[in-house]
């Protein structure tokens, strides 16, 4: 049986990424926010302030883990030391699921600390899907891969990104952490229609949606997470959200920070785009 039928994935509501510049406001004002996403690696440390801050956050808020260095598509052995620490943190935080990126970022003896895109081939689908299944089995909690923003396409590509992404998650029987800003950024850099992307992925596997801002340089767009969410990205979100039947939504803001209050206000805009699904639910309940 597909495991996505056996898991109950909660809709946590609207959250934001937990970031250092906001700690003071959060601890002082204890805002009524639904949940926080943490970057796993920031808390996979021996001790000190990061752990203390995490404990304070966990006293009041649900926390979900999102990693950046799993490098599932790297031509290098899985890092079991890293995976053991990741699992230990997952148990500690009681994260309801864990995500990382559909990318590569290391080779034997080297880490590039970037989310590098993969060639879209059947061989790579088989390779990544098998590794994702191994990771999922090891972690023992729902595991999701996030679609990238990418700036290159390979001569070796034999299929579009949405087909590659879908094939991996279905073959591995895992989940999707769908970043709608990344769909938009990649659609600009690779000149495809975001609607085609959204029409061709298994929405039942989406367990969370990311929103973020980006930098438009004309000839290319960079996924910088340092700005408000653009209208075009909200439009994709509005398209996607009802099709997921309602999942947790997260705003990422990682640079050129604004106040916590303004970041939260930006995240809450998601509610207006969730209205269609809410109306549909109400209509069903009333009928």
């Amino acid at each position: 049986m597909s495991q996505i039928k056996s898991h109950t994935i909660p809709n946590l509501g609207i959250g934001i990424g937990l970031r250092i510049p906001h700690y003071e406001e959060i601890f002082r004002n204890q805002p009524d926010i639904d949940w926080f996403e943490i970057i796993s690696e920031n808390f996979m440390v021996e001790g000190g302030k990061p752990k203390e801050n995490l404990d304070r956050i966990m006293e009041r808020y649900p926390v979900v883990m999102h990693g950046v260095t799993l490098s599932i598509g790297s031509a290098a052995e899985l890092d079991w030391d890293y995976l053991k620490k990741l699992k230990a943190l997952a148990r500690y935080t009681k994260t309801p699921w864990l995500s990382d990126h559909l990318c590569w970022g290391r080779l034997p003896g080297a880490h590039y600390h970037d989310l590098l895109p993969l060639p879209y081939t059947k061989e790579v689908v088989e390779y990544v899907a098998e590794r994702a299944r191994i990771v999922q089995d090891f972690l023992e909690i729902p595991f999701a891969l996030e679609n990238l923003s990418s700036y290159v396409a390979y001569q070796a590509d034999h299929m579009p990104e949405w087909e590659f992404y879908s094939a991996i998650v279905e073959k591995a029987d895992i989940y999707m952490m769908l970043d709608v800003n990344n769909i938009y950024v990649s659609s600009r850099n690779h000149h495809f229609d975001p609607k085609v992307y959204c029409d061709n992925i298994p929405m039942e596997r989406v367990l969370q949606i990311h929103l973020a801002g980006h930098s438009d340089h004309g000839d290319y767009v960079l996924d910088t997470h340092d700005n408000y969410v653009r209208d075009e990205v909200w439009q994709i979100y509005a398209e996607v959200y009802p099709r997921t039947r309602g999942v947790s939504t997260l705003l990422e803001w990682d640079d050129n920070f604004i106040s916590f209050e303004d970041t939260w206000k930006e995240a809450l805009k998601a509610k207006q785009f969730q209205a269609e699904l809410i109306s549909a639910h109400q209509a069903t309940a009333g009928g």
Binding site: A75, Y112, R131, F138
Partner: peptide, 24 residues
Amino acid sequence: MPFDVRSPQQLKQCQQWFASIIVR
């Protein structure tokens, strides 16, 4: 220890080339 999967040779070559460029 849990097992792993051997990486495709073409993927390895592609990534080695990519890495050799971006670290310069």
